[in-house]
């Protein structure tokens, strides 16, 4: 039978739910709500393939009617422009601040993840591939 389930209710990945266990690169286990900026930086330093990049929020276009937002970032030292479409409650990790989303009330309601409002100018943690020789 063809699936006619509405596709208008996408779900967030399970690892953003409060209490989810996250393994850092050194093997340490932490709850998602306890992660610090240093955890990401140190994990990336250990990683042989991934490096942390700074992604500055340049623009946020969103509406509560669509449940989606388009977030435009300026990524890395070359300030490459990257846009991503995410659910309003999708959390990004802001340097020195923690989890932030376009709609922190929804994030807290759906995930119980403490969250602040993502704003233009925030610098988020993102990943790129290390240059492999």
């Amino acid at each position: 039978a063809p699936s006619s389930a509405p596709s208008s209710a996408p779900s967030l990945p399970p690892y953003f739910i409060k209490g989810s266990i996250i393994q850092l690169a050194d093997g340490e286990l932490k709850r998602v709500e306890d992660l610090k900026t240093e955890d990401f930086i140190q994990s990336a330093e250990i990683s042989s393939e991934l490096k942390i990049d700074s992604s500055t929020v340049e623009r946020i276009d969103g509406s509560h009617t669509s449940n989606f937002a388009i977030v435009q970032f300026s990524v890395g030292e070359h300030r490459a422009q990257v846009s991503v479409e995410v659910l309003l409650e999708y959390p990004f990790f802001v340097f020195g601040q923690g989890w932030s989303s376009c709609c922190p009330d929804r994030t807290t309601q759906l995930l119980e993840l403490p969250c602040t409002k993502l704003s233009v100018g925030d610098v988020c943690i993102s990943l790129t591939l290390k240059n492999l020789r």
Binding site: P13, S20, I21, Q23, A80, I125
Partner: peptide
């Protein structure tokens, strides 16, 4: 009988969006 539930463990990098800047050269 209560079976122990395995708790999922997620790798740290799954939490971070992978934003690969385009290389101009």
């Amino acid at each position: 009988n209560v079976e122990p539930r395995s708790v999922p463990v997620f790798p740290w990098h799954s939490l971070v969006p992978f934003l690969a800047p385009t290389q101009s050269d």
